[in-house]
Amino acid sequence: MTFALETTGLSKSFGGFEANADVSLSVAKGARHALIGPNGAGKTTFINLLTGVLPPTSGSIRMMGEDVTRVSQQGRVRRGMARTYQINQLFADLSPIETISLAIAEREGSGARWWNRVGKDSAVIDESEALLRRMKLGAMMTRRTATLPYGKQRLLEIALAMACKPKLLLLDEPAAGVPEDERHDVLDSVEALPDDVTVLLIEHDMELVFSFADKISVLVQGALYAEGSVEEISTDPHVKAVYLGEDTHV
């Protein structure tokens, strides 16, 4: 069986410190897979290895069966990998419609065109508009991103990843810092992600993990500590001890 994502013995050391040690993780196609772990467990390093921001010290990464360990960041995006950030990484000066059409144009290979105006390509604009409406951003498509409420910016963060039409989506704490009254919008949009997109969710919020994931992997001190269904993980006494017990997020 080919997996959407498969890492084999993936390790990353910074000097003497092993941020990720021998992580072998397989994410089935179409899965809703969650990666949890206490602070400092190496989740962020892991996502940086997957997306190609950092080169691994050893080990390999396969995506849809293809080895992408040496493929550049942009190359992985072209192969269908997209991510969101724990802390918003948006274009403050652009409007959501510009932000999304930028990503769509890039995906379609027309992002470097200089001879026509942004917005001339109606296929791009229509798709952007439809995506923004689906993500409940229809009312503020033309505002400057910096002026959007935080929860809306989180939605745009996810919409921007979706604009790349990913096969594999890495969500890094999508609900982090979202105020209570805007939370359900973010959770709903995560729930509503299309089934053919494989999702790896990196999350602290147990409520979201347990309601969303069908499989959970636990990362502790850079290494995989446990793996199993929601049922198994939520009742595993060891996991409870090292993670759930220490953490007050439950």
């Binding site: 065109r113 200089w114 105006r117 942004v118």
Partner: peptide, 9 residues
């Protein structure tokens, strides 16, 4: 153009 927009981004 889209090119200009990508520069701003």
């Amino acid at each position: 153009s889209p090119f200009g927009l990508s520069l701003k981004a």
